[in-house]
Design a protein around this nucleic acid. Structure first.
Lengths: 211, 211
DNA sequence: CTCAAGTTGGAATTGACATTCCAATCATGC
DNA sequence: GCATGATTGGAATGTCAATTCCAACTTGAG
């Protein structure tokens, strides 16, 4: 028998240079649309128009809509993490944590607090209904949380952070504050909630500093 | 000219006893479906089947789908807040805060961490695309955050919490932790993230206690 | 009882969307 | 240059959703 048909994956094939660019263009257009309208709220014709491609191109490169959504999740994860570097890889001081969080707050303000977190929004929409999407979202959050935890762990290894601090839990708490803060800010159209949320958690981390 | 047509609102009319029950049944069925599949992922035929009503009944009572969604937002807000009382109205000690948060964590475990927060999920889906929905979500979160802030303020008034503590900001941070923690837990299918998130913020609040 | 208003059923309409198909064109290794 | 596979356009298909319509039925006030 043949391999189990995995939904959302077109048969692996060689990509022409032009093909790669088309594929990329589709993903970017879809990511943008899905950020604003959600995955369900974005239709294939929408993506066609935004990317300037025909339906067959989308189905050629992604198999079906779910395949496109999965590609968008990965793309947003890569893009968001890349945007946060190198800050993200150096979260080993309270100041660095504050600056990193502040950056996101300014970004939020810059777009008038419309839209929340690119990954969080997709997560909220897809976590329950789409098993393969959920799996990718798990790894998206892990890839995000990892560097935070590493930074805190380095502080602890250097003796700056109390031995009693649970760096893994603190990293999770900070990521949760980012997500929850973004959501409240998106609804209230003000970054205040986001700033208060992350500030509280960072203050808490600060309380573990060995003075 | 006539009054500006406000979308999603059927003309106010007297409700028969049976009519009120039908209306209620529709809202409850819709709320349940939308919790699991999202508002966009829930069709009117879905609601018809779940509530055992005909299309005309839904349009009779809610005008259009948006009207139903708005009613669901209000219903979920009322229901969720009611479920949390009387705990929610007595959040004026660290223990009370912990118990209140823990209750939600157990609830999350009880359903295998499927589905996040009833209000938060709707918020993430609707905040950007639907102005009237966003307005209602703002008040939903305000109604939720209010009692938290009041509890903290009472602690402060009693001299238990430092004068320097910003109770409003702490209340927002806690609500954000709840939301972000729920989201991470939903994706990871484990309430651990939720518990760590709220625990960190409550620990932080605790650090403001006047000993 | 009797009428106006509230309530309900169910079919009909209209439009959009996901997906498929096929035929044409293009790129590249040999 | 040729064959093979990659890429593209555009129409066709089938499904399903949102909404409208209208006729029938029920209820409550007077």
């Amino acid at each position: 028998m043949s391999a189990p048909a995995k939904t959302g994956e077109p048969k692996r094939q060689r990509l022409t240079e032009g093909g790669r660019k088309t594929r990329e263009r589709i993903i970017e257009a879809a990511a943008e649309l899905m950020f604003h309208r959600g995955a369900r709220g974005t239709s294939i014709p929408d993506v066609q128009a935004a990317a300037g491609v025909s339906a067959s191109q989308i189905y050629h490169y992604f198999g079906d809509k779910q395949g496109l959504v999965l590609a968008v999740i990965d793309h947003q994860t890569d893009t968001r993490l890349a945007q946060q570097r190198p800050l993200l890889d150096n979260l080993d001081s309270i100041e660095a944590l504050r600056e990193w969080c502040d950056r996101a707050g300014s970004r939020q303000d810059a777009r008038g607090c419309e839209g929340g977190c690119e990954i969080g929004s997709l997560a909220s929409e897809l976590a329950d209904g789409d098993q393969s999407a959920r799996t990718r979202l798990v790894s998206a959050f892990d890839r995000w949380e990892g560097p935070i935890r590493s930074g805190l762990a380095r502080m602890q290894a250097r003796g700056e952070l109390s031995e009693r601090a649970d760096t893994a839990a603190l990293a999770t708490a900070l990521l949760a504050a980012v997500q929850g803060g973004m959501l409240l800010s998106q609804v209230r159209r003000s970054s205040t909630a986001y700033r208060q949320a992350v500030s509280a958690v960072i203050d808490h981390i600060e309380s573990h500093l060995v003075r």
